[in-house]
């Protein structure tokens, strides 16, 4: 019985490449070159948020995630924040979009809104992990990441500095898309991962800087990638990941006492111990804001423009 349940739970992972296969089959063999879009003035920085593996759609964002992004925007006025990219779909199709299992996902989502972190959430998480594995797979990844990059190209300004803010599994999706955006963005993007789960995707080299913000109580989730991606193992010194780490562009920063999921995670509304004023989420927002200020284009900042 347990084996059957386990096998059923693995089905979404087994069939995960089908979505990419279906998307790829609808693509023209030789796509016509698109006319370059007209872009307005570049913002001081554009931030793209990649949600974790519990994500449901680009439009729907959990209240706590939205709060974090609002705080960042408050601390860094003038930046553009994009959170409408659903990284676990090659074509940005939300789970409640036109899908075979649309009703199931909607039902699960309703339950989630009633009882957060209930046991059925696992189904959404497993489904999204399947897409993460597709993105990191050398066979399917190039197609998947092209789709994701196309979705982002529609939203991004090519000349503005770009920061990808990724939570948990979103880090791999950001890494996958970054390589495909190399020809589009003028400046190399930066990545800030909140307890990010990385794989050995060579896309990591497309970033100017990667900062892994990790809480002291976020013990094992960010280490999961090491289980199945040998490129992350230290002795594989020739892997892109290890070469990037040695280049000094990768930094690990302890963000505080954050855990991975819970009331004291990177978005948490709980107050910090010994500091009744600040919440866990606010602490994360301050860390990110510090980096936004460092990497944003000073000439585009509203206060500089006003002068």
């Amino acid at each position: 019985m347990i084996a059957i349940i386990f096998a059923l739970l693995l089905l979404p992972i087994l069939f995960a490449p089908l979505e990419t296969a279906q998307w790829a089959s609808t693509r023209p063999l030789r796509p016509e070159p698109e006319k370059r879009k007209e872009f307005g003035p570049a913002p001081p920085l554009q931030l793209v948020y990649f949600t974790g593996v519990a994500g449901y759609s680009g439009d729907f964002l959990a209240r706590r995630e939205k709060a974090l992004l609002d705080q960042i925007q408050e601390l860094c006025p003038g930046i553009t924040v994009h959170h409408d990219v659903f990284p676990y779909s090659v074509s940005n199709l939300p789970l409640n979009g036109e899908r075979v299992f649309r009703t199931l996902w909607m039902w699960l989502h309703k339950w989630r809104l009633k009882i957060p972190n209930n046991v059925f959430d696992v189904l959404i998480v497993i489904r999204n992990i399947g897409q993460l594995l597709v993105s990191a797979d050398p066979r399917y990844g190039p197609s998947y990441n092209s789709g994701l990059a196309e979705v982002m190209e529609e939203r991004l300004h090519p000349d503005a500095p770009t920061l990808f803010l990724a939570y948990s599994g979103g880090a791999q999706m950001a890494v996958g898309a970054a390589r495909k955006l190399e020809g589009f963005l003028t400046h190399k993007p930066h990545l800030v991962a909140l307890g990010g789960v990385f794989t050995d995707d060579p896309g990591i080299a497309a970033f100017e800087t990667v900062v892994q913000l990790r809480g002291k109580r976020d013990y094992w989730v960010p280490e999961l990638g090491r289980l199945i991606y040998p490129g992350l193992w230290r002795w594989q010194f020739w892997s892109t990941w290890n070469r990037y780490r040695r280049s000094g562009k990768f930094r690990k920063v302890t963000s505080g006492l954050h855990c991975h999921v819970g009331k004291s995670d990177y978005f948490g509304f709980d107050k910090l111990p010994r500091n009744t004023e600040k919440t866990y989420g606010e602490q994360s927002a301050e860390w990110v804001a510090k980096m936004v200020k460092k990497w944003s284009n000073p000439t585009c900042r509203p206060e500089v423009r006003a002068e």
Binding site: I13, L14, L133, V134, A136, D137, R139, I228, Y229, P230
Partner: peptide
């Protein structure tokens, strides 16, 4: 081996 990532290994 169709399983993404794990199948590749």
């Amino acid at each position: 081996t169709i399983i993404p990532s794990i199948g590749y290994r």
